[in-house]
């Protein structure tokens, strides 16, 4: 099993090495990076490349570690007992399997994505240490041990909202996705829009990287915004000239709403454009 990128995902050399190290050594791989730089999609692509099933666990602020293992639905069981349901005799009927359980018992070695682990309570990663280490856990209600037949490839993403505990980090390999440079970005765009006009792309990238340089933006546009914007430019049949225009009236790029999603940022940008225009007039 080796990962070398796919035809729909551009993997830099360092990312490729990190992924393969995690696969070979069967350690979880922690992926960080600006929003929209392909952290989540990576797990999909790795699964695709390895021809492995993907099991996704999306973490929310209320997610508990135990939910990844299993949950015992005592309330339903009580209800059933009142109704005289036969199922009630077997406690196993009320054990709801979590994503880790699913991954441990998968027929083929799966890719397990734990997406946005930093959303959960700060103790969450600690609560999963043992299970991720040993790839097994104990179900008290049925007194069984669930053990991974084959250790899943575990990919974990974080947006840095919370710091992760050291004990957890020691068990992971780590990769920080650097924001793609022009060359890499061109490759990424090519993967999504193979036929895109070269001139248009060049001008669009100029505008895109310029906007990222604007100081004070709350949310810099990233890969996903660029892709959305390009799609719009294509739909609207924009010409490269319309993007290149250094004409003072046109300082705000067309369809900029796709790039700047935050109202404050749009205002900031318009204000800057306004000031630049005034300067040019003087």
């Amino acid at each position: 099993m080796k990962f070398a990128g796919t035809d729909s995902y551009v993997a830099s050399d360092d990312l490729r090495v990190a992924v393969n190290a995690a696969i070979a050594l069967q350690r979880p791989l922690l992926i960080k990076g600006e929003p929209g730089t392909g952290k989540t999609v990576l797990a999909h692509e790795v699964a695709k490349a390895l021809n492995a099933p993907l099991i996704e666990w999306h973490i929310k602020s209320t997610t508990k570690a135990q939910q990844g293992l299993y949950e015992y639905d005592a309330v339903s069981r009580l209800r059933d007992s009142q109704l005289g349901d036969e199922r009630v005799k077997n406690i196993a009927n009320y054990i709801k399997r979590g994503k880790l359980w699913e991954a441990f018992t998968s027929k083929e070695r799966p890719v397990l994505l734990i997406d946005e682990i930093d959303k959960a309570d700060i103790e969450f990663p600690n609560d999963l240490l043992l299970e991720l280490d040993r790839m097994e856990f104990y179900v008290y209600e049925t007194q069984e041990v669930v053990k991974a037949a084959q250790r899943p490839v575990v990919m974990i993403t974080s947006n840095n909202e919370k710091e992760l505990p050291d004990a957890f980090l020691r068990r992971c390999f780590f990769h920080y996705i650097r924001f793609p440079d022009r060359e890499t970005m061109t490759q990424i765009v090519d993967v999504h829009f193979p036929g895109l006009q070269r001139n248009l792309l060049r001008e669009a990238l100029n505008v895109f990287y310029d906007i990222r340089e604007v100081p004070g933006l709350k949310k810099k546009p990233s890969t996903s915004e660029l892709l959305d914007w390009l799609k719009l430019l294509m739909v609207e049949d924009m010409s490269p000239d319309q993007l290149r225009s250094k004409d003072a009236k046109q300082l705000i790029p067309p369809l900029h709403g796709a790039l700047l999603k935050n109202e404050q940022d749009v205002h900031l940008f318009e204000r800057l454009a306004f000031m630049a225009r005034r300067e040019q007039r003087q």
Binding site: A18, N20, A21, L25, F173, F174
Partner: peptide
Amino acid sequence: ALMEAMDKGVADYSVDDFYFLSRSVLVKD
């Protein structure tokens, strides 16, 4: 972990790969 990875041939015997590998294994932040 790094020793194990070297042993398993993850680094492909190029210096760049060795650098990437050790970075991924040793740096967590």
